[in-house]
Design a protein around this nucleic acid. Sequence first.
DNA 1: TCCATAGTTCTTTTT
DNA 2: GAACTATGGA
Length: 750
Amino acid sequence: MPTASVLDSLNEEQRAAAGHVSGPALVLAGAGSGKTRTVVHRIAHLMDAHEVYPQQILAVTFTNKAAQELKERVEGLVGPAAREVWVSTFHAACLRVLRTYGSNVGLESGFGIYDDGDQLDVLKEILKSVAGLEDANPRALRAAIDRAKSHLWTPEVYAERAAERYGAVVSGMEVEQIVEVFARYEQRLKQQNAVDFNDILGRTVELFDHHPDVLDRVQQRAVFMHVDEYQDTNAAQYRLTRQLSESYRNLMVVGDPDQGIYAFRGADVQNILDFQRDFEDAQTYRLELNYRSVPPVLKVANAVIAQNSDRLDKVLKPTKDDAEPVRIHQAADHRAEADFVARMVEQELAASGGDLNRFAVLYRTNSQSRVLEESLRRAGLETRIVGGVGFYERREVKDALSYARAALNAQDDVSWRRVINRPKRGIGDTSVEHLTRFAQRHGVPFSAAVNRHEEVLKGTAAGKKVQAFAELMQDLQEASASLPAGKFLAYLLDVTGMIEALKQEGSFEAQGRLENLDELRTAVEEWESEHGGSIAEFLDESALMASVDDSAVKAVNQGEVPSDAVTLMTLHNAKGLEFPVVFLVGLEEGLLPHRSSTGSLREVEEERRLLYVGLTRAEEALYLVHCDQRMTFGRTEPARVSRFVEDVPPALLRYVDAFGEATGRTAGRPKLGGLTWRSPALSQEPAGGTRAPAPGGAYKGGETVRHPKFGEGKVVGVSGSGAKTELTVVFPEVGAKRLLVKFAKLERVH
DNA sequence: TCCATAGTTCTTTTT
DNA sequence: GAACTATGGA
């Protein structure tokens, strides 16, 4: 007797997976195959047809954004009951467990979370006192320690494993020394009642290992468990998954081995490949029908990923109608590349309308975003940058939150030392050094040394100032306990003198910082009115949030980031998202694959998967761009098209010129010269002076020209030659424009 | 103690 | 090119 089911709207593949009820299941879901849709419907189906309580369902994702989306979609299907489903990232879920049960593993209430910057501070402090490592690179150490901890290795285990895996020297440092620093680092964090990101997972594993009663309680919330992006789980996440699912075994993992892009932080694609070994009775479901991208895009994506040797055979099958081929453009340099993107956005907009939210520009490294942003803005196109230097990493914001952390945790040396002289209050490095040494000698926190400044500084001039600081902190400690989050932050900004100091400074930059603090205050207030909660809870949430458009930060950006904008982000950030029109830029050797990831086949294949992720974001149109030369570290160097592009059958790509017109050239080894145009900034100094002489009648800087649309303007730069001569012209109305003489119908004005 | 300046290092990617 | 660090003078 068939009745209407929530599964009716799914295709056959999806329905099979979503209809899975008990026991372990592996869902191999290709890009754009409706993975989230399947999970959402599965949850709804459990509640609907099998009377599973929402409180028994756990779904773990990798990003806050993915969690948010999943939550909303489940609610859309089953209504308010969905709010009882536990949807969370691994980190947020574990943090919640630790806040409740952390005392079982030596975490005192109010423990702090150290981000990358805090980690570096701790390491720098340690390096001062370890002989032979005075000038070791703290970043390299952090990388080594992070890697170890993502495998759940203690310093002792690391000593063994590192020796056998990498030999006696890692990144130019003796393994023995790394182990020494690692051990001290762990000790410091413990003393400071703080955890780093890896600890959030690692301590939870430890807690579950040693406290079966706690594990049992949490398992009750995970009777039906889902893990998204399972191919990106590291050892800690793998262990957590096993622990939480071991009693009920209703575990559904979803993922795509071809989209594993986090090996660098310990993720192991083997986890998903081994799922059937781990759970012999696992059902496997495959989703291969792609609903996202037009066939030309899928053909390129399939061709790229097929080059990987270490993978399951899988092809994305199109469901959409055929469309324009994937376009590829060779630009002279990063500025020309950015201008090309801006121009294509304008053209697409003119041709088919729609808004800027349809467009995304994806790149390998954050540093590529600057030029792209400039060009788009110059063309009058709004941009939205996802990720990058986060709001919470800006100095003034970090200072303000450090005050809050210091007030909440007297053992947090990193925060105390950070704020003691912010704003400048006459407590210099020497005094801080004295206080630090006193604290070390007596085995007490830095804050204790501050409170006992009379013993340390013996009534010197600095002593008076430290006295005032001690009183300030005392005051803040009390305020943090009595004031709600928003009021506390406002109070803090006031009494610490942060606002006052910036007002005094009066510079343009200080103005910006003031605005940021104001935004922070708004964010805290809005967060408080939405979720309620203390400043401590706000700190937790903001600590786990890197990306600019996650919930608590959204408020911050509402005034600033337009709702209609081109999205700019790294390829890593793009995973799970989709856009009608996608630009992949910087497809060059050294960038993709990145120069630091070409050492082994494993690394190169991960880079290829990264490209695959980027390609499969596009719904309707896809542009690939690479440059002849690229600036790195402020130096311009020749660049070659990525090997990944050369592997694509030329017939699948259509080369276009700077204006999007087909060049007739097919992909493959480009002829040098004549095909690209040059940006003025670089052509001022042609390499080797080989530039062809300008033909007679060429434009010169300083001349006035008339453009049919922009009116009269002044030539400020000339570059390229022959048919590719390009001018930079400043127009009074629209500002600087770059124009190809061949296309722009210019007239000389005398 | 603070500030200006010159030098240096740096870029993968993120919860 | 930018952000961070060391340095020397006020």
